[in-house]
């Protein structure tokens, strides 16, 4: 027992020594101090934290290559400006200057290294006029100008298939191509035409809804958005803001199928614009349209204002 107590005594005092010896070094390191063994003084330092995407880049501090690779922390740097260069095979190198402050960390943690030969893959087949990506469904929709048809593929350009044709008379180039939220329709528009194509129609149905075109020769179409119900379109031209109905109607067969849109029918002009809207934002989650327009104030001066138009709270027809 006596010898055990002796060993215990040695262990105890050893622990005390380790604690009191170790704690100054741990704290000084943590707080950003460096112990100078020549002067026996602690010097204030800073550190740089580097992270790259992808990791594994070589780090040059000035002209000196450091042994660490990213992600890495360069500790115990005296305050000042440092040139940092990050290099990785087959990636563009990245260089910057960083300011190191005493007892602080300079973070270089959002560095993306871009490949010198990017991995590019052609997805389309044929000449495309426009496309859109449905990330949730994992599909890409292409408008093929040569064949006047819409194609669909997965996000890797595989499973390529034609899903619909565009009617004759639609003028190229289109401005945009948009899929409705129920993924039943595709909207294509140019400066004077809106085209709605109905998808997922079974061939054996007795009623087939062909794509149709709405023409707006006297107006210039700026933007068209799908309403969140996928049954209406929000149209912004240089003259007004309108809502179009795109709801399937019952047809004589009794089967619920999309009914044709007719120009001028089921359209409500909500706002007459004084000028072409400079900016438009449609918040689809709340069906709110933000837009700008000019208006003459009581003082006779023309002001540009931003307006908020709620399209969700009121019945639209």
């Amino acid at each position: 027992m006596l010898s055990e107590q002796r060993i215990r005594g040695v262990l105890f005092y050893l622990s005390v020594v380790i604690f009191f010896t170790g704690i100054p070094f741990i704290l000084s390191f943590a707080l950003g101090y460096k112990f100078n063994s020549h002067t026996f003084k602690f010097t204030k330092t800073g550190l740089i934290s580097i992270k790259t995407q992808p990791p594994g880049a070589r780090i040059y501090l000035g002209s000196k290559l450091l042994p660490e690779k990213t992600p890495a922390t360069i500790n115990e740097l005296l305050p000042g400006v440092y040139d940092i260069r990050l290099e990785l095979e087959r990636y563009y190198s990245y260089g910057t200057q960083v300011q190191v402050e005493p007892r602080k960390v300079t973070r270089l943690e959002k560095v993306i290294l871009f490949p010198t030969r990017p991995n590019i893959k052609q997805l389309n087949q044929g000449k495309i006029a426009s496309f859109c990506v449905d990330k949730e469904k994992g599909s890409i929709y292409y408008l093929n100008q040569d064949e006047n048809a819409i194609y669909e593929s997965n996000l890797d350009g595989e499973e390529f298939k034609e899903i619909s044709n565009l009617p004759m008379g639609f003028n190229y180039p289109p401005k945009e191509l948009k899929v409705s939220f129920d993924r039943e329709k595709i909207l294509i528009f140019n400066n004077h035409q809106i085209c709605v194509v109905y998808l997922n129609q079974k061939n054996n149905l007795p009623y087939y809804q062909p794509p149709l075109i709405l023409n707006y020769p006297a107006q210039e179409i700026e933007h068209v958005f799908w309403h969140s119900d996928s049954c209406h379109l929000v149209l912004i031209t240089d003259k007004n803001i309108a809502v179009l109905e795109a709801t399937p109607k019952s047809n004589p067969t009794g089967i619920d199928l999309p009914a044709p849109l007719k120009e001028g029918s089921h359209q409500i002009n909500l706002v007459n614009l004084n000028s072409k809207a400079l900016g438009v934002f449609y918040e689809v989650n709340k069906d709110v349209l933000y837009f700008s327009d000019y208006e003459r104030g009581a003082d006779g001066i023309i002001y540009e204002n931003i307006y908020k138009l709620e399209l969700n709270s009121k019945p639209l027809y």
């Binding site: 390191f29 943590a30 950003g32 330092t45 550190l47 922390t73 960390v105």
Partner: peptide, 13 residues
């Protein structure tokens, strides 16, 4: 705190 050396080193140490 997150900009300080100890803020960066605390969890690592």
């Amino acid at each position: 705190f997150n900009q300080t050396a100890i803020g960066y080193n605390l969890s690592k140490i």
